[in-house]
Design a protein around this nucleic acid. Structure first.
Lengths: 373, 373
DNA sequence: TTGAAAGCGATACCAG
DNA sequence: CTGGTATCGCTTTCAA
């Protein structure tokens, strides 16, 4: 078996100093001479000191405040992410975690303000959706400089100094979509369209590339058209699709890489091409359900928002508590939803949200108000 | 904000007794008069006492021993389950958990002995594969009577008094398999075969029923043949399949609901029907990889053994620590693996086992020896 | 059967 | 700047 773990006392004794100084040194609190600090740090390392979390929680009364800066969203995606975060926070056995939801209504509206207020409040950590990486990068950097770790959900902000990122594996998503498209379509010739938010978003460009590459390797009978950018604007999506359907009457499939599938479906319906298209969408939300049931949507790639929220929370929490986490990049495998297994996913969603309501009723949480407004 | 939580002291003060008696009463330790015990229990309830876990871990030196009774297995499935269990055990922040692996080489060989020794060792909890529900039921019941909670992985043992079950949702698996089979096959007529271990296993019967039902609702052009039982015996599987292929020359697809897909593939190859069959398999292991790459296997339903192991461990641990867990039945959604996203899953497996090796090197764990024999 | 008290390891405060 | 110490809530042991 192992020998008993090193404690603050052990370090203090070994150095002939006091437990108080050791503590201050390890937390670089004010009031330690550089010399003692150095010696303590060294000794802690050589003795392999690991703080005893139980003791820490017991004696310290402070609570971790985590700010969740996300989008309201037009589908349930971000609601699910927030639910996942709440669930994960609720299942931390000891520890008081306070979640601070700063939900902004629209893309690029209020996100900067939310960051500013979170940093001013000096929260302990931030979970966020880096909707506009180029704009938010500097905010994330500011947070990091203020020693506030930031974990991005769904979309990465590369080069921003963020602590970590949790998202769906873009390669797996794009590839499985292509594979399904190819198998569903058979061996005859055809052309396929793909829609996305903007090629400037890393994740979207990657999905697109993966889709294209898998299609090219395994299904050379299918030709991929130039990607359609919708910028999450309904009319833009609808109009571009209408044009597309007119221009390519032999179109045989569409892969919608974002949540914005409803305008595409409407355009297809209005152009009367719905029943000869193989449509593969992304995510699962109420408005999409009838289209899956009817078979108009052959399959949808579910990005597991709840799991993303849970994992992002755990990653941040682990870092805050242990000072490190085992992995700072998590790429989840998406789930595939079709007519047959649709009910499984719907049932699970509703069951979980029921459970959560019960939980909240027993134990009213803090900072949740705006999330239900 | 909330008022300070109730402590043992609060209960003692309110009752005019000592903190020691309160403690003994709450843990029904010997040496408390029935009267005081009653009063303590009542007061604890009315004051809403919740034990402070940090304080508990800090003062108590005892370690939780969990016995893992699983199959060696012919594929990597159970290795992955055990890896998941180890990972989950390793990420418990505080707490000493000792895992005791009792791995038996073959179905129905050594599982009863393992249960007996676990119960005699008086472990704190058991994670197990209820391979033969009818036989193991009485062992699980014995464990439960000895106050040892049992969580089943992959296969349930209904009516055994087990604490919980973690598995793959059979309905989602069977349905998605049918949906894919139907979509891949197109609209022409055809017949489909299904193989399973034994209709006596609940999970297999359910998958089969879900497959049949989805096929019937959405793809009436496909006819499902009578299920083939292989009992996980290679020759049985191979021979039955050879016969099947001879008898039904117009067979167009096979759904293998268990890990036993290799004999089916061999039979199809030897019968020279491989290239006109749509084959959907279950799970992901080294021997299957080339068949997925070659396209012989159109898709495989990955049962996420590692996730199953992790969740089973967490369920048991939560129960042992909190005295209850939020859910005792977890049905996971399976992942779909095809040529396109195969690399993602392979990469993830190898990456994770690498990480784990590193982890173990830093911090040698207990009771792992036989798992690497 | 019960009460009292000594830890567990870290935090935080106060006196030197 | 440093050393000492009360404290967190529970477990466990020792007396009574």
């Amino acid at each position: 078996m192992g020998k008993p773990p090193t404690t603050l006392r052990d370090i203090a004794k070994a150095l002939g100093t006091s437990i108080g100084s050791v503590h201050r040194a390890l937390h670089d609190n004010p009031g330690v001479s550089p010399l003692t600090k150095e010696r303590v740090l060294l000794m802690a390392r050589t003795l392999g000191y690991r703080p005893n979390l139980a003791a820490r929680y017991l004696s310290s009364k402070k609570t971790l405040r985590i700010s969740v800066i996300t989008l309201q969203g037009t589908t349930s995606f971000w609601d699910e992410v927030r639910t996942g975060i709440r669930q994960a926070a609720g299942s931390i056995p000891l520890e008081n975690v306070e979640l601070d939801f700063r939900t902004h209504p629209r893309l690029g509206e209020g996100d900067e303000e939310a960051f500013e207020s979170a940093i001013n409040d000096n929260v302990d950590g931030i979970l966020t959706f880096a909707s506009r990486p180029q704009v938010l990068r500097s905010w994330i950097r500011r947070a990091s400089r203020a020693k506030i770790p930031v974990v991005c959900v769904a979309t990465d902000a590369p080069g921003s100094g963020r602590l970590g990122i949790v998202g769906i594996d873009t390669l797996a998503s794009g590839s499985i979509a292509a594979d399904l498209m190819g198998r569903f379509h058979g061996t005859r010739e055809g052309s396929i369209a793909i829609t996305l938010f903007d090629m400037g978003i890393t994740e979207h460009a990657e999905k697109c590339a993966a889709f294209e590459s898998t299609l090219a390797s395994f299904y050379p009978n299918l030709q991929l058209l130039k990607p359609i950018e919708d910028h999450d604007v309904e009319m833009e999506s609808y109009n571009k699709c209408r044009k597309l359907f007119e221009k390519f009457p032999n179109l045989s499939g569409v892969y919608v890489t974002t949540e914005a599938s409803i305008p595409v479906l409407n355009a297809a319906r209005d152009a009367k091409v719905l029943d000869r298209l193989t449509i593969i969408t992304t995510d699962l939300f109420p408005d999409l359900i009838p289209h899956i049931r009817s078979g108009a949507v052959a399959a949808t790639i579910y990005q597991r928002p709840r799991a993303q929220g849970q994992i992002a929370f755990r990653m941040l929490h682990e870092f805050l508590v242990e000072g490190a986490s085992r992995s700072h990049q998590v790429a989840l495998a998406p789930h595939l939803v079709m007519r047959g297994n649709l009910d499984f996913f719907l049932h699970r969603q509703s069951q979980d949200s029921f459970k959560e309501k019960v939980h909240e009723a027993q134990e009213p949480a803090h900072g949740l108000a705006e999330d239900f407004a």
